[in-house]
Amino acid sequence: MSQPRGWKELPIGAVPFRLSTDYKTGDWRALRPVVDMNKCVKCMLCWIFCPDMAIIWDGEKILVNYDYCKGCGICAHECPVKAIDMVPEPSE
């Protein structure tokens, strides 16, 4: 450490640089939300309340991104017409 080192030589630290979208949290899930689009009134409350940003609105229907959904069930509980069912994950 006799020579002072510049910032380029230092190892990467203290700066998170990869997007967490690379980290799939979907395998935490025990119950899987399934949207019944026949009952859905497209009020978007599930999209607003989803803590994992896993509900996606494509302009016509509600999609669930199962890569990230942790299966908390907030969407099913808050749905005013009960269009979302929490069904158990299929076992491997």
């Binding site: 967490s20 978007m44 999209w47 989803c50 994992d52 940003m53 890569d67 907030i74």
Partner: peptide
Amino acid sequence: PRQLAEQKRPAILPGHRLCAGCAAPIIVKL
């Protein structure tokens, strides 16, 4: 809400490791 879903994107990305059912990311998102 429907315009929100079509035009806005949250500043917090999925893949964070907060517990399932945590309300903190909902506050950040809103």
